[in-house]
Design a protein around this nucleic acid. Structure first.
Length: 851
RNA sequence: GCGGGCGUGGCGGAAUGGUAGACGCGACAGACUCAAAAUCUGUUAUCGCAAGGUGUGUCGGUUCGAGUCCGACCGCCCGCACCA
């Protein structure tokens, strides 16, 4: 044994784990199971530090649980469909499949050196027929259960990627991937009926105790439940079939303030009126409106008075005008509203612009009615005085008034309470090649027919080209032409493929039986589900996690998952990013120029380039190629080893927060591991019969370390666990104990380090005479008797300020402690004879004297 | 606008309502060296020679005791946003 050389020990121990097949997950009825999963990566071709941090966290959990006696499932796969593969094919030629498979090979080769405890025999890639064929089978099952439908819909069209985006994929009016301004188009699309589960997906959030509160809130807001009244206006002068107009409101208590009704430009009534050219022109104008955040925010409210009237439900002698307005959404509520300008900011703006009546329904308690210059919209929980109420007492909260108004409407028979959700159905059609084909066939005689399961998978044809924009499947005659599974006549395949979020909505279930010829296998799913600990980025707080929750329910309904798995992730942890400083200079034209970390010379004065140019240092930002602040894990592994990379990304910052990668931090980690190595070498060379007087102290330090490191890992406080490992290492280094005791302590140190730095742990374990593999050694248990010292040091406060301390036996009764404290000379000096008003003794913690 | 989170040394961060700053980085000093690197030892919130004082964004409150709990404010970050 000589110097710490990761390049020598890391491959060696990885080989040893492989040979012993340590990480293969096996169903073992004798053991409790534990399923650890990190969000699977997109095979971009390169791993980055974020991956290292994400997978190391999962690995720490997996290795700890395995040592604690669990049967652990810790798999890895590839979220392999999606646009980058097609973009690469378009830009560089080649084929998406070859590009993707090549990237998978490369990335796997980069992940292997990290020494993760992954069961690679379960590896899957969503782009392989073995996987997506099962997805198609489930799609057909979902069709049968009424969870899939087709409809013409106004969709978000990404003009750059030439595809449809889900609402969730439109961020600030731009495509989430292309960043192009999204347009509105009407297309026939495939949808999953996630809205059937709105209420359940919302209600079940309460049960997800081990999810971050933040994620639950984000999902709750996204589902967006509202309770209100739906009722019908009687229309006056409307075309046949529109004798009534259904509207929805969450503020039925303001009905007496109604001054107009408004419908969406996409409302059937608006379409019926389009025979009039002015109406047609106006609705066309509304539809043209962009969906970018900027446009929406600055969009002026525009309206068109149809000339129609509706009768007020509480007073048929009052008639309200019906307007078409651009701010009414067709796919929320009924696509029609009544406007109460006095108590709604949008309605106020609209009424002001078009000179409509503004009539108060309520005023603040004790106030009198005055003409409004702005809408009065108090919190619903605030009591107000109803001057034009029609249900409940004159003074009540908005909430109470809404409830009373709904009850009144139901009793009077003109409306009923309705719960609405913001969540829309999930549009999954994509006009792309590199995705899972939707397994249906269009037949002139039979219509839209599901492909026979026997004919699955509907495989993507390999012979396609990407020289023209659009979907290559559309122009592939031999693939597209097929026979109808129902009547056998010539028919055409559906050429839309599925949103890649479908692929990632069930991979966690597939890992339980990744090579089965059905989507899942009942016994495997029953044994391994649920995921006990899921780890990934906060950026998936809504989309991926909500879709997965829906899919788990759909899989249960179609018989592919047990009832217990409808909430598939028992615990969720969202980890922070790995960040790095950005080094910037400015070119002659004032444009920013970014520099690689290795080109920077840091000194006390700041940062410069090799030629002395002063560089601006922008602190801690997400690693990005364009900012040149990316640190390649492969460079770190070759310079310092995987253990250093793993240890560093887990140290310093709490795992949910961002961690800044610094060169000095990485070096410091390497130095620490080298010290552990040197310590192990030193102890290995000690004569076996060497005695020392520090054995008892070292044993105490050891058991404290076991308790604290275990608590740190189990509480997802890896940074604290690492801090305790530093302390423990220093304690061993300083100890003057017998060789036997030193070896014992080092073996425990190896075990406690093993989840973070598995390779050096194995080496130390072996050097100190550990039996078998450290990775398979049972996790050490702390002896409670060794965690407490016999004597404790108690600080003494006088009036809350620390003035002295005494050392007392732990078991000393409070009355004895009081006497000792009051006899302490520092205490006497500070008391200076003042009478004691109160004396507080918190056993084992503190003494406070109040004068 | 609505919802949520966070403010602690030069830096990352510790702290079941009980000694604020664990652990690490950086810095400084010393040892070793012809010298440097590496390594090792020590110091390192702040004012003060000391005794002691002051310190967790600001102001107030609860408490024997507040970084922690409560209220108001300031600042930063995140999510949603014409959802009736």
């Amino acid at each position: 044994m000589s110097r710490y050389d990761p390049s020598e020990i890391e491959p060696k121990w990885q080989q040893a784990w492989d040979n012993a097949r340590v990480f293969e997950a096996r169903r073992d009825p004798a053991k409790p199971k534990y399923y650890v999963l990190e969000m699977f990566p997109y095979p971009s071709g390169r791993i980055h530090m974020g991956h290292v941090r994400n997978y190391t966290m999962g690995d720490v959990v997996a290795r700890t649980k395995a040592a604690q006696g669990y049967s652990v499932l810790h798999p890895m796969g590839w979220d392999a469909f999606g646009m980058p593969a097609e973009n690469a094919a378009m830009e560089r030629g080649g084929h998406p499949r070859d590009w993707t498979e090549g990237n998978i090979t490369e990335m796997k080769a980069q992940m292997k050196p990290l020494g993760l405890s992954i069961d690679w025999s379960r590896e899957l890639a969503t782009c392989r027929p073995e996987y997506y064929g099962q997805q198609q089978a489930m799609f057909i099952d979902m069709m049968e259960k009424g969870l899939v439908y087709r409809k013409a819909a106004v969709v978000n069209w990404d003009p750059v990627d030439m595809t449809v985006l889900a609402n969730e994929q439109v961020i600030d009016g731009r495509g989430w991937r292309s960043n192009a301004l999204v347009e509105r188009r009407e297309l026939t699309q495939w949808f999953f009926k996630i809205s059937d589960y709105s209420g359940e997906l919302l209600a079940a959030l309460d049960g997800l105790k081990d999810w971050p509160e933040k994620v639950r809130l984000m999902q709750a807001n996204w589902i967006g439940q509202s309770k209100g009244l739906q009722f019908a206006f009687q229309t006056v002068g409307a075309p046949a079939g529109f004798e009534t107009l259904e509207v929805y409101t969450t503020r039925p208590d303001t009905l007496m303030g109604a001054s107009f009704a408004a419908i969406s430009a996409d409302h059937p009534l608006a379409k019926a009126l389009e025979s009039h050219p002015d109406v047609a022109a106006f609705t066309a104008l509304c539809r043209k409106g962009g969906t970018s955040a900027l446009e929406i925010e600055t969009a002026e409210k525009i309206g068109f008075d149809t000339g129609l009237r509706v009768k007020h439900p509480l007073d048929p002698s009052v008639e309200l005008p019906v307007w078409i307005a651009n701010f009414i959404l067709m796919d929320y509520g009924t696509g029609a509203i009544f406007g109460c300008p006095a108590h709604d900011a949008r309605d106020f703006e609209f009424a002001t612009k078009y000179g409509l009546t503004i009539k108060s329904v309520f005023v603040a308690e004790g106030a009198v009615e005055t003409p409004l210059t702005e809408p009065y919209v108090p919190m619903k929980s605030e009591p107000v005085h109803y001057i034009r109420g029609f249900a409940g007492p004159a003074v009540q909260t908005g909430e109470a008034a809404v409830t009373a108004a709904i009850a009144h409407a139901e009793a009077a028979g003109f409306g009923h309470g309705v719960t609405n959700y913001r969540l829309r159905d999930w549009g999954i059609s994509r006009q792309r090649y590199w995705g899972c084909p939707i397994p249906v066939v269009h037949c002139d005689a039979c219509g839209v027919v599901a492909e026979k399961k026997a004919n699955l998978p509907v495989e993507l044809p390999y012979d396609v080209t990407f020289d023209i924009p659009g979907n290559p499947l559309d122009r592939h005659p031999t693939w597209r032409n097929c026979t109808c599974p129902s009547c056998g006549a010539p028919a055409r395949r559906e050429t839309d493929t599925m949103d890649t979020f479908v692929d990632s909505s069930w991979y966690f279930a597939r890992f339980t039986s990744p090579h089965a010829t059905t989507p899942t296998v009942a016994e495997d799913a029953a044994y391994w589900m649920n995921v006990d600990q899921y780890i990934g980025g906060i950026e998936h707080a809504i989309l991926h996690l909500l879709y997965s929750r829906f899919f788990a329910r759909a899989m249960h309904k179609t018989g592919h998952l047990p009832a217990k798995a409808i909430e598939p992730f028992n615990a969720l942890f969202t980890q922070g990013m790995v960040t790095h400083e950005i080094y910037k200079t400015t070119d002659a034209n004032g444009r920013p120029v970014y520099h690689l970390p290795e080109d920077i010379i840091r000194s006390d004065a700041g940062a410069t380039l090799a030629d002395g140019t002063v560089v601006e240092v922008i602190p801690s930002a997400k690693m990005s190629k364009s900012k040149k602040n990316v640190v390649d894990p492969m460079n770190i592994i070759s310079a310092f080893g995987a253990d250093t990379a793993r240890w560093f990304v887990m140290s310093d910052s709490p795992p949910e927060r961002d961690v800044e990668w610094t060169a000095s931090g990485a070096e410091a980690t390497f130095k620490h591991l080298s010290r552990v190595w040197a310590l192990s070498v030193r102890v290995a060379e000690m004569p076996l019969d060497h005695q020392g007087e520090g054995d008892a102290d070292l044993l105490r330090a050891t058991h404290r370390a076991i308790a604290e490191v275990t608590a740190g890992i189990e509480g997802f406080a890896f940074n604290k666990a690492i801090a305790k490992l530093y302390e423990f290492t220093n304690a061993i280094g300083r100890a003057s104990a017998s060789t036997i005791a030193m070896k014992d302590a080092l073996r425990i140190l190896a075990q406690l380090m093993q989840p973070m730095t598995p390779h050096i742990a194995e080496a130390v374990w072996a050097a100190q005479g550990g039996a078998g593999l450290c990775a398979q050694a049972p996790w050490p248990k702390a002896d409670p008797a060794l965690l407490e010292d016999d004597t404790v040091i108690l600080p003494i406060q006088i009036n809350g300020k620390r003035r002295a301390e005494i050392s007392v036996p732990k078991a000393m009764p409070a009355s004895e402690v009081e006497k000792l404290a009051l006899a302490n000379e520092d205490v006497l000096r500070f008391l200076a004879g003042q009478p004691i008003k109160k004396l507080i003794v918190v056993p084992g913690r503190i003494i406070n004297v109040v004068v």
